[in-house]
Simulated scan of single mutants.
Amino acid sequence: MLCFEHAFHIVPPHSLEQVKRLCRRGVVMEVHWEHREYTADSHLVARYESYQALDSEKPIQQNGWSKFVHDGRLIDRGHFIVSGSSTNMLDEA
């Protein structure tokens, strides 16, 4: 199972809090997450939006994330590297 702290490179003593998760099931199963990163003294550092979508009819998987600083500016984005079912983020849904 993929660990969001590892994927987003959260370093101690910072913490990551999941604040939202939305799931949609059907031919394409989608999960969207929102996380917030805080310092040890509870100051907001960044907000992360991530998603994963799996098509049940085709071997297609889409996933990615975006990082926003505390004022809402996008500062980074990327894709999760998924190498098998053991790293399937939908397992965390």
Rank of each mutant, 00 (worst) to 15 (best):
M1I: 11
L2A: 03
L2V: 12
L2C: 10
C3M: 11
C3I: 10
A7Y: 05
F8G: 02
F8R: 02
F8S: 03
I10N: 02
I10L: 01
P12E: 06
H14S: 06
V19K: 08
K20P: 04
R21L: 00
R21C: 04
L22I: 09
R24K: 15
R25A: 13
G26T: 07
V27K: 10
V28Q: 09
M29W: 09
E30S: 09
E30C: 01
V31Q: 05
V31N: 07
V31W: 01
H35T: 03
R36W: 07
Y38T: 04
A40W: 07
A40K: 12
S42G: 01
S42M: 03
L44V: 04
V45P: 00
V45Q: 04
A46Y: 02
R47E: 04
R47N: 02
Y48F: 03
Y48A: 01
E49K: 05
E49L: 08
E49T: 05
Q52M: 15
Q52L: 14
Q52Y: 06
Q52K: 12
A53C: 01
A53Y: 01
E57P: 00
E57S: 13
K58P: 00
Q61I: 13
Q61C: 09
Q62M: 11
Q62L: 08
W65R: 04
S66F: 06
S66T: 10
S66M: 09
F68N: 08
V69R: 14
D71S: 12
D71R: 08
D71C: 09
G72S: 00
L74D: 06
D76L: 13
R77I: 00
R77S: 15
G78D: 14
F80P: 01
F80L: 12
I81L: 09
I81D: 12
G84T: 13
T87L: 13
M89C: 08
M89K: 09
A93L: 03
A93W: 06
A93P: 02
